[in-house]
Design a protein around this nucleic acid. Structure first.
Lengths: 148, 148
DNA sequence: TTGTGATTGATAGTCATTCTCAATAAAAAA
DNA sequence: TTTTTTATTGAGAATGACTATCAATCACAA
């Protein structure tokens, strides 16, 4: 049992919920998921490994993982909610290329500091923040120039 | 005919699209809309003024207004896309209170500058950016303390 | 072991949004 | 001014991501 599983089990117990095998399967899949994933991708990934967990169960488990702090909701892609792991990862932000859909992750301590100051200015107690920048990666900038 | 309408008409013409009365009605409503609105609110607002424009037309027109730079998509509220005017407004960002839903708008030039630098670092040509901070406003912080 | 209530699976339901298509209309061309 | 072209409309059907339902099962506390 790894740390993430332990964290999840404790969270479930604290909330008066049960640690079912399905929930553990989903967690395991999340821990090996690619960087950004949506509910459907997670469901399919589980099924690719011959684990039979219903789609509804996947959807139901996601908010539990979010509450537990193991994953967060991140950039929407094609209007769909997507998630990424937070367990063992540092907070970061994203640039999304409108051309090719590439996601560039970045972290800048100055940004973190500035956000903290801004929140203090408004006496706002921050829980989470997200910066999303949309535009064109360098490859697409070149491509768009070529196209005229 | 005001500047926004002129801008919209020119954009439509440039794109080989038509300036229909319905589109102008929708634009007028957008210009008098409250700060943040969703498609349904816009539709209802139009109907409150006895203007008969179909819901589908409202949905169809929104992306045109976005392309034209008159409105932008902004914070999602209850999973629904919401919009706000950009015409005649400065870019700003949002803090959303998880307690009461209040939206605090803010602008900080240091943030704008930093984002520009970050984009330069990655050679990313920025089209738009959004920072959303979620947490608790000072009233809700107090309320939550009271509750224990 | 028993009892309780959470959880599952699979499908029906929901709802914001988009699609369809015949009729209409904006605007360019004649 | 009239005709032509094609974009656009309205209204309801369709879509699809996500949630609700419910009988059966199961995790876990006693």
């Amino acid at each position: 049992m790894n740390k993430a599983e332990k964290k999840f089990r404790e969270h479930l117990k604290r909330e008066g919920l049960k640690s079912t095998p399905e929930r553990m399967v989903i967690l395991r899949e999340v821990l090996s998921a690619k960087k950004h994933f949506n509910a459907d991708e997670l469901y399919e990934s589980i099924h690719k490994h011959n684990k039979k967990v219903s789609r509804a169960t996947v959807y139901r488990t996601i908010p539990l993982l979010v509450e537990c702090g193991l994953i967060i909701e991140t950039l929407r892609c094609q209007g769909r909610v997507s998630y990424e792991r937070t367990f063992g990862f540092e907070h970061h932000d994203h640039m999304v290329c409108l051309g090719c859909g590439k996601i560039i992750e970045f972290k800048d301590d100055r940004l973190e500091e500035l956000q903290t100051q801004i929140c203090e200015r408004y006496e706002f107690k921050q829980v989470e923040h997200r910066l999303g920048i949309r535009g064109y990666c360098k490859e697409c900038v070149v491509k768009r120039l070529d196209k005229g």
